[in-house]
Design a protein around this nucleic acid. Structure first.
Length: 399
RNA sequence: GGUGGGAUAGUCAAGUGGCCAACGACGGUGGACUGUAAAUCCGCUCCCUUUGGGUUCAGAGGUUCGACUCCUCUUCCCACCA
């Protein structure tokens, strides 16, 4: 039982620091029913969670299964600084209402995965603001600049002459201080957070918390491109609130290599099962597309339900395998004759008439499934299905 | 505070008076091939109903027939020295 729990916790993790402590905590739980705390920090700057976040959330859910109480930390104080790990140098300051709204939508999404009864939502503003200037100084004095520059981001940016704001140095310290305040037993985060996570350990020691948190790092999930990390700003993400059709389609669009990564980090299938599937693909007994469909179904069903996931697959096949028109298309209408390029822009499937003209020239535009080439074309009254490329559709009614 | 360097399209990055809407790379996008996969190949990639017109190269002025390129000021960044 204990071994099984440990294996499940270890699954997919990139690195665990102080694994002995995790073992001890679990042992105490199994033998005495003693709970422990698992901290994970979230930045409320964007209101939507994507699958990259769910890698962490799923791990938290695993801890909850085995006695962990999740400290779901909302970084409403640190958000003002911006974690240096992103490349954005400065971050705009969010209004209180925005943050509140983001937090609300954040937690609703998170509870699709987490067990609400075993989750404490905490806000670091509550204690960091109280820290004051004196407390900040004290905190800042615990670390040398040389140590700080050890952090990969900082040294790279420093080496490449990219600016670093002094306030950014505070970020790891404050995140570490969160662990002091919360007396966390375990903290989990992405591998890019290693420095910050370790800071928690160090500060817990410095501030004499009597314990040092274990640290579990999860790999960073790559985005749809398979190279960069999944993030909203790179637009390579699958959002947990994405429509079933989009979700299904996006999963199917990832490369075969990336698919294994998604399996490992997102699927609930056991590692053995995944290994079996993988060897099936390798020896040719399983088609990779089928395998990817399975994954897409699983993921879509998790955030919606089985029914909707199946419908998404049927819809997908209809549009892409049989090249038919999707069931739901945005509808637009207009008065009088319209020039085709203008119509495409009005239907939001082209960004500008210039782009529309180029696409027409290249034969990317279809009306009612027929390729068109006349860029002077005027649409007179009637109903048209407009299409650009393989994915963009709109229905236009000309009166 | 001093000295020097820099700011170019989504990103990186050429361009040092006309040949510049601006090389190239990446990204994005369209097409071919497929499994809407990857890889590969070809096209497109500021806006405008376009053999043309308009607005761009941090910002504001100026020199010039003509400026991304020269001058002045402003803003921001970097390095070295203090």
């Amino acid at each position: 039982m204990l071994q099984e729990a440990l294996r499940e916790i270890d699954r997919g993790s990139a690195e665990i620091i102080d694994n002995e402590r995790i073992e001890k905590l679990l042992k105490a739980y199994f033998e005495e029913g003693k709970p422990y705390t698992v901290k994970a920090g979230f930045d409320p700057t964007a209101p939507d969670l994507h699958l990259g976040h769910t890698v962490l959330l799923q791990k938290l859910a695993t801890f909850q299964k085995y006695g962990g109480i999740v400290q779901f930390l909302i970084g409403n104080f640190t958000a003002a600084i911006g974690d240096p790990s992103g490349k954005s140098a400065t971050r705009k300051v969010l209004s209180q209402e925005d943050i509140k709204k983001n937090i609300a939508s954040y937690t609703t999404q998170a509870f699709k995965i987490l067990d609400k009864s075993k989750t404490e939502i905490v806000y670091n503003k509550d204690w960091l603001e109280a820290l004051g200037a004196a407390g900040m100084l004290e905190l800042a004095s615990t670390l040398t600049v040389a140590r700080m520059l050890e952090r990969d981001d900082f040294s790279k940016r420093h080496a490449s002459n990219t600016p670093i704001a002094v306030s950014e140095f505070m970020y790891p310290l404050l995140q570490g201080y969160d662990s002091v305040h919360l007396k966390s037993d375990v903290e989990i985060g992405g591998t890019d957070q290693k420095f910050n996570l370790l800071m928690g350990r160090q500060l817990q020691k410095t501030y004499d918390v009597k314990k040092q948190q274990a640290v579990l790092m999860m790999p960073i999930l790559e985005g749809l491109d398979g190279i960069q990390k999944m993030s909203k700003s790179l637009n390579n993400y699958i959002g947990v609130t994405d429509e079933p059709n989009d979700m299904f389609g996006k999963v199917l669009s990832i490369s075969d290599d990336l698919m294994w990564r998604f399996y490992e980090l997102l699927s609930t299938k056991s590692l053995e099962e995944i290994a079996t599937i993988k060897s099936g693909v390798e020896d040719g007994s399983l088609h990779p597309k089928k395998v990817k469909e399975e994954l897409a179904l699983e993921i879509t069903a998790r955030f919606h339900n089985d029914e909707l996931a199946k419908e998404a697959k049927i819809e997908f096949d209809k549009v892409h395998v049989k090249s038919q028109i999707p069931t739901d298309i945005d509808e637009y209408s207009c008065e009088g004759e319209v020039w085709i390029a203008k119509a495409l822009v009005d239907c939001n499937i082209e960004p500008s008439t210039s782009q529309a003209r180029r696409d027409i020239k290249q034969g990317a535009v279809k009306i009612n499934q027929e390729k068109i080439s006349d860029m002077q074309l005027q649409l007179c009254s009637g109903e048209y299905i407009l299409q650009v490329g393989k994915r963009k559709f709109a229905k236009l009614k000309v009166n």
